[in-house]
Design a protein around this nucleic acid. Structure first.
Lengths: 221, 221
DNA sequence: CTGTCCATCCGTGCCGACACCCATATTTCG
DNA sequence: CGAAATATGGGTGTCGGCACGGATGGACAG
């Protein structure tokens, strides 16, 4: 056994659920080479914490009030280039996975994973190695990681911001006319966006669109 | 200070996220009068665990794969009348709250609450007192709880078996004709059932019907 | 600069959802 | 037994979802 490094890696932990922070902190602090030095309950708080502290790794939940983990990740990757970022989320979803990598995260772990996987993901992130969460090794992700490793072109975001906006409203049950009035655009434009969404996501109708939106956490049932 | 009871209350903990179970278990086991004796990762597992074990209280997450916490709560309330049920969820939402009470839960706590509130909610549930999570004391909830306390009539779920069958199929995205073919009845009859469902549940269209079905655990997103 | 992607807009047409009206056979229950 | 609820079937009409065409202007990258 070799000596551990000069000091354990310093971790910032952000999740809006107190109970999750409890569990994660318990697991990470049990490792000699990892220590949680700060907690945050939303994305803005996480960014603020990282500003004033010496932190090596940020573990961010995606779904947080006010500012999401993805948003915070983009901010952190921009302002603190040396900082590693690990997304910790309940969403087993390719969309979010790609979004996370694009936001500057080097790892993506599900909240349902075992303790060991979480620890390994943290260590991998600290080495700046991409971490594939177990059970998500789909062809798409493999392709993505291969391309990322070889410096190839990354696939673009399948869904634009505007489309996500429309997706959310459609899934909430609003008609094209309502959405058009809300966004001050023609109902026909809304329908065009909706049609593009159906095509891009490979779905059939707005009912499947709703279930998709619920699945990825865009809206609540 | 009096002596604690002859034994701590035995708790079954169900949540699909390992990390949440860690946190909750840590908090509850720290209390001398509470002990977690079993864990489950989904609703079906929770029901199975409760069958073979001596359990006083079930702490159930709502959003779980395969079978939701609400579904499991209904099952448990039916098969194990003595068992107390506490819903633990991320949804700060009246709909869910009512759905939980109707499913047989005696408490409703958010995952973002502090440790103390979770412990107090468990103790309240064990005494079979309804627990209002902090910040959710709306008029609607007060009325409901008053009626529950005074033994008044609780709003029932006025859905027949046949209607639930149609509800499920509609929520899965099938058309009236498809459902008619499947159940060997006229599409018009399907439409009549669907119309009755909308009226009974106070919903507007099949999109809300879908979200309702997901909420009560009838189908998955 | 030129091409690609994005957001915006329009017309036509079909079909299913949904509301409103109606009736009838069976079962359940007071 | 008679009333109510349930499950079944029908007709008619409006409206919106969705597919299929098309077009334009602006932003950004190669």
């Amino acid at each position: 056994m070799t000596q551990p490094g000069p000091r354990p890696a310093r971790i910032l932990l952000a999740d809006d659920h107190t109970l999750v922070r409890r569990g994660v902190r318990l697991i990470l602090d049990a490792e000699p080479d990892l220590t949680v030095v700060a907690e945050a309950a939303d994305g803005a708080e996480a960014v603020a914490q990282a500003r004033g502290l010496d932190v090596d790794l940020a573990v961010l939940d995606i779904a947080m009030p006010r500012q999401t983990g993805l948003h915070a990740a983009r901010e952190l990757a921009r302002t603190r280039p040396g900082l590693r970022i690990l997304m910790l989320t309940m969403y087993d979803n390719e969309q979010y996975f790609f979004e996370a990598l694009r936001a500057g995260a080097s790892g993506y772990v599900l909240k349902s994973v075992a303790d060991r996987d979480l620890v390994e993901a943290c260590r991998a992130a600290l080495r700046d190695e991409p971490f594939i969460y177990p059970g998500a090794e789909t062809t798409l992700i493999r392709t993505y990681l291969d391309r990322a490793r070889n410096g190839g072109p990354l696939p673009e975001r399948p869904i634009t911001e505007r489309e996500e906006e429309i997706l959310k409203l459609v899934a909430e049950g609003h008609s094209s006319k309502e959405i058009g009035d809300l966004l001050v655009i023609s109902p026909k434009t809304v329908e065009r966006h909706r049609a593009n969404l159906l095509q891009k996501l490979g779905l059939r109708d707005r009912l499947e669109l709703t279930r998709y939106a619920i699945r990825v956490g865009l809206i609540e049932p």
